[in-house]
Structures are given as structure tokens and as C-alpha cells.
Write a protein that binds this DNA or RNA. Structure first.
Lengths: 227, 227
DNA sequence: TCGATACGCAACGGTCCCGTTTCGCTATGA
DNA sequence: TCATAGCGAAACGGGACCGTTGCGTATCGA
């Protein structure tokens, strides 16, 4: 219990010699000028395998509780020791692993706001990587109150950047006169994101049809009221 | 360890002889004309305590995995035996317990579709019972793939009836000419339900403001496009 | 070659929970 | 008064997982 395990900072540094430091590498995180420590360097391959196995399990098992260190180790083909050398416990591992879901989708700049929104929405519910991201989303949201730090980080690094892409498109639409000048951007965000996330997880509704993104965007654009 | 388990009062008021509990009661569910079986009757009080503890735990623990039979027993103040006498395992217990969340909110018939939708939406995100229901929703959805039967039953008995209330209001609006004649009802449903569910669970966004329901309905009614 | 460290693997003691059984007691009808 | 069955408490064997440790091996710099 007294064992003080080295807590790795979330900072990233370029690798120096031999080890081609890639982004987000947990093992090579050390100041740029520092000398390489003695001994065998940590395996970047193990790093990646662990993080990928963690994310996969989180998506598949439908909950933080379903992710066990032993299952991650087995799936990644590494020993538990190798995991505990890097992270102090399960929550820390999952928090770090979420970085793997970080990269935002680019904001398309098409002919119109409508087209941009549809493109984003389509990527949101159909893209293969985003499928995993959505599964992780539901897994994490389910156990939200249990792991507030996990929630906070996931919200900050994964959810918000995505909301921001849409937010930007909406604001651009207002400026360009394509959307109402008095548009309630945040409410519109809840509507579109909510519809997509819910539909993607709906039970018994089958896979999301190809035209769902367009239907959502059009319904939101034109409104449901008679005119 | 202290067994601080709360004990139920020794004298448990069971139902009057022969007058078995009406619907849904697990313990007294037997054909109307059948004679009461010999021996001590099952405690209705224990039934209710178990179901309530189950639902509470499901809502609080944020996942099916967080609900353990031992925790339910402790919380309900009953022995594990009493639970296993009624249900064969955890999933069966949870499935049955969901019936406690069943009763639908009534469809209000106000002056307009807009008012009806706002009333429903407001109840959805603010009502106290619905808060627990929403927590259970997220808990169950998170572990969806793990417990398909649970998902199916929850969808059928809790989610769909609620969707149906809104669906009816929307259809009525179309008939009454208040909504577009070519309205895509299902897509509108995804939009409104998704926005409410998402917002209610949003991290760091604080409690749902009083006017959120109205904002969502109005945004959906009038659309976001300039006109 | 040598020291240092990481590796995978296996095993450990500990905790939690499962589903079952036994115990002594209590509630009910015959 | 007796048979029957539910009650809570406690204990059991079994399994999953935790976080730790020791082992023999692999890989680095000096």
C-alpha cells in the first residue's frame, strides 16, 4: 500500500535516439533534453496494444466495470506487470486510453451549412472509428457518476471538440444568413447530437439508414410547424 | 465487521387471506380461483423493498454490473434467500424490477401541440420519478449488448410507451394542421427525445434550466433555417 | 561483458460476489 | 397442536479480479 508508483504526466515529448517517439506515447514521456534512462526501454508496441485493447473492451463490454486489467492484458498479449508499470489502476488506464479517441473529425467546408451538417452527421453515425467512439460514449455515460474524472476528461477531449465543430458550422450559417439570425445555437446542438447518438444506439431499430443524417438535418432546418 | 443490516419489523402485514395482490405481484401471482397454498405467505413488503432497492441501485450505480444481489438484499433489509426464492438470478430480478418504472405519463391535451410537447418535455427532464427513470435508462443503455433481453423489455415497456405519447401528439398536430402535412414523425421523435435525454445527462452543464423544454420544442417547431 | 531495466508468465493473498445450504424462528391454515 | 413454508442470518465452495512478487529472459548503454 505504501508503494509510490510513478505517475506519468500526460505530457508528450519527442523521442530522442532509436525510439521514434510518436504522439501520446506513455513510455517515452520525458523532457526533450533528458538522457535516455539505462536499461531496456519500454515497448511502444505494448503501449499501443494496451491502449487499443482497453478502448476495444470499453466499447464492447458496455461499461467501465466490464474492463478488467486482466482482460486488457490478455487481449493485448502482455503481462499484467507491463500494465501496472505504466498506470496505477484501471481508471487511470482508461482515462489515458481515451486519448486514442481524440482526433476530431475535420470541419468540412462545403457549399452550404446543410451539406456540412449532413456530412458531419453522416460521419458521426457511420464511420467505423466513430462507431467505437459512440460505444465508448455510452459505456462511459452509463457509469458517469461512478467515475467523474473519466467523464470530465472524455467530455473535454472527445465530446466538446465534436460539438465545437458543429457549433462553428452553425455560427457560420448565422453569419452567412443561411440560418436564422436569432438562432439558439446550443439548443440546436443538443437536438442534432442527441438525435444521432440516440438513434445509433436504438434497440430493435436496426442499423442507421443512409438517409438518416439528411432527415435529421432537414427536419431541424425547416422545422416541424406548418407554415 | 458490524452487521448493521436494518431488520424489518417482525410483524409483517401480509395481504388479507385469499385476496391476493392484483397485478404484477411476484409472490402472489396465481390464478384467481386457486386456493391459497399452505404455509406462511410471502411478504409483499419484502417484494416491494427488493424491487425498489434494485431500481435505486441500478440508477445510482450506473450499470447492471453495479447491482449485486448482496447489495440489493442489504439495501432492502432482506436475506439473500428471500430474493433467490423469487428470482433465479440478477438479470431476471432487474427485468422484473423495471416494471416499477412502467407507468407512462399521461398525454396532456392542451390548447396546442406546442404546449403539449413542452409539458411532456418538462416532465421528462424535471419530474422526480423520471429522474430515476432516466438514470436507469443510461445504466441500461450502457450495457446494452451485454443484456439484450433487459434492453428489449425496457425498450418495450418503458421507452416505447413514452415515445408513443409524443408520437400521438405529433400525429394529432399534423391532422389539426398545426404541423407540416409532410412531417417526418419518427425523425422528429429522435430529435426531441435525444435532446432531452442527452441534456439531462450532460457533464458540467449543470441542472436542466426551466426553459430548456420550451427552447427545444420551439427550435424544433420553427426550424433553424432562415426564412 | 556488466548493470539496469523491461518483458511475459505464474503464483500469491485478499476482496467481492455468486448461488446454495443450514439454522432457528415466525406466520399461517387445518 | 401440528404441518408447511417464508423469514433473516450465516456460512460455504467457487470464480473473477485486484495489486504484488519472483522468475528467467530480452534489450539497452557503458
Amino acid at each position: 500500500m505504501s508503494q509510490t508508483r510513478e505517475r506519468l504526466p500526460a505530457q508528450v515529448a519527442a523521442g530522442s535516439p532509436g525510439a521514434g517517439g510518436s504522439e501520446g506515447s506513455v513510455s517515452s514521456g520525458r523532457p526533450a533534453g533528458a538522457a535516455r534512462p539505462p536499461g531496456r526501454p519500454r515497448s511502444e508496441r505494448a503501449d499501443k496494444a494496451i491502449v487499443e485493447a482497453t478502448v476495444d473492451l470499453l466499447a464492447e463490454e458496455g461499461g467501465v466495470a466490464g474492463v478488467s486489467i486482466e482482460a486488457v492484458a490478455a487481449r493485448a498479449g502482455v503481462g499484467k506487470t507491463t500494465i501496472y508499470r505504466r498506470w496505477p489502476n484501471k481508471e487511470a488506464l482508461i482515462i489515458d486510453a481515451l486519448a486514442a479517441l481524440k482526433e476530431p473529425f475535420p470541419a468540412p467546408v462545403g457549399a452550404s451549412v446543410r451539406e456540412d451538417l449532413i456530412a458531419i452527421a453522416q460521419a458521426f453515425v457511420s464511420n467505423k472509428t466513430d462507431k467505437k467512439r459512440l460505444d465508448c460514449y455510452w459505456s462511459i455515460m452509463g457509469g458517469a457518476e461512478r467515475y467523474p474524472e473519466l467523464m470530465a476528461r472524455f467530455t473535454r477531449e472527445v465530446i466538446e471538440p465534436r460539438r465545437d465543430v458543429i457549433r462553428t458550422v452553425l455560427r457560420r450559417g448565422v453569419t452567412a444568413g443561411e440560418l436564422r439570425p436569432d438562432l439558439d445555437v446550443e439548443t440546436a446542438l443538443w437536438l442534432i447530437m442527441g438525435a444521432l447518438a440516440q438513434r445509433a444506439r436504438a434497440f430493435g431499430a436496426g442499423p442507421v439508414p443512409d438517409d438518416f443524417a439528411a432527415r435529421v438535418v432537414d427536419a431541424l432546418m425547416t422545422g416541424i410547424a406548418a407554415r
